Simulated scan of single mutants.
Amino acid sequence: MTIPAVLLFFVFHTYPALQGLFYSFTDWKGYGDWSFVGLKNYLNVFQDSRALHAYGFTFKFAIVSTILVNIFSLLVAIGLNSKIKFQKTLRAVYFMPNILGILIVGFIFNFIFTHFIPDLAENLGINALATNILGNPDLAWVGIVIMAVWQAVAFNTILYLAGLVTISNDLYEAASIDGAGVWRKFWSITFPMIAPFFTINMVLAMKNFLMVFDHIIALTGGGPGQSTEAISILIYRGGFQGGEFAYQSANAIIYFIIIVAISVFQIRVLQKREVEM
């Protein structure tokens, strides 16, 4: 019964991946004839200033977004897990951003950054916010981070909530009797107990942000100039629009290896920390 699913997976995933790996050793432009060039494409990636800038931007964006998402989602999860009114309703409200299309959310945030905030700031006399940050090469990435974090917090919050409900209230009551404060309870009970969920959130968030694409397309398109061009944007444009199919296939293979390496490193480090806790 699994044969049809395996065949579909092979045709639409494995075969294209193997085909991309094959063409990464050629000079194929996406059309016409081709010939083998060996490791030339891979070596050229490390000498391409545009590719190196894209990698640098992607890592900066992914690291900052991953940290912020986990901080905010953990705070929201702790708040929703406490005894407050309309708890279930609030959980549904906080999860809504996750079910919205990224492009739709991106266009909304584009309007907010381009028109709503500058117009509001101008009327209030706040000059620092009166300009569109998406048009500033030094600040455009901040707008992308804000949008990405806002939407990603929803999913991470659900995972943290799943971890928080597994913690027995008896532990908190015993800690209160011993005179433990809020911070001590969090650091000695809450965080160690949800450590596996923290590992999952960190790995998934980093992986997703390293593969950022739709957020940038909707907000800046990689601009101004190339200031917010992530590696996925570069691979797409160079491979499908710039006649660099083979070269960008090599870039994609390198990108894939880096993402896998970072994910494995995160899992090993964070799981080791789980044991120490």
Rank of each mutant, 00 (worst) to 15 (best):
G125L: 12
L74F: 14
A140Q: 08
Q226A: 14
P192I: 05
D214V: 10
L234W: 08
I177H: 04
L21T: 02
N169C: 00
A140D: 09
N208G: 04
S35K: 08
H13T: 09
P137H: 13
K83P: 01
L8N: 04
K40V: 02
W183H: 03
K29L: 10
Y172W: 01
V69Q: 13
I259C: 05
L103V: 15
I67G: 10
V203C: 00
Q226R: 15
F25Q: 00
G20Y: 08
L7K: 08
R273H: 13
I258P: 04
G56A: 13
L159C: 06
K60A: 14
A261R: 02
A5K: 03
F12L: 12
K88S: 15
N123Q: 15
W141R: 03
A261P: 02
T2K: 13
G143I: 09
Y255A: 07
I258G: 07
N251V: 06
W28H: 11
I3H: 04
Y23M: 01
L164G: 00
F198N: 11
F86T: 13
V37R: 06
I71A: 15
G242R: 00
Y23V: 08
I102N: 11
L100S: 13
V105D: 14
Y23I: 08
A54H: 02
G238F: 12
R237F: 14
N98V: 08
D214M: 12
H13Q: 03
T157K: 07
F113S: 01
F186G: 00
E274V: 15
A175W: 01
L21V: 02
F25A: 12
Q271T: 15
I235H: 06
M202F: 02
F9A: 11
L103F: 12
V149F: 09
N127I: 02
N127P: 00
R50D: 13
I231F: 07
I254F: 06
I258N: 11
I267M: 15
Q151I: 07
T166R: 13
Q241V: 10
G125D: 09
G143E: 07
L68C: 14
G225S: 14
R50T: 14
V212T: 09
N136P: 06
I194E: 04
F61I: 04
A174G: 04
F109C: 11
I189N: 10
I108K: 03
V212S: 05
I144M: 06
A54W: 03
F111V: 11
Y42Q: 06
N201A: 07
S24R: 04
L161G: 05
L75H: 00
A252I: 05
T66L: 04
G30V: 03
I146T: 01
L103T: 13
V45C: 08
M96V: 14
R237I: 11
V260I: 13
V142M: 11
I259N: 06
L161W: 01
K185P: 01
G239M: 02
H215K: 14
A261Y: 02
N127M: 03
I267N: 10
D48L: 09
I235T: 10
S65V: 09
L90K: 09
F197D: 12
Y31M: 13
G135E: 00
L219P: 03
G163A: 01
L8K: 00
Y55P: 02
F61P: 04
T199Q: 06
T2P: 12
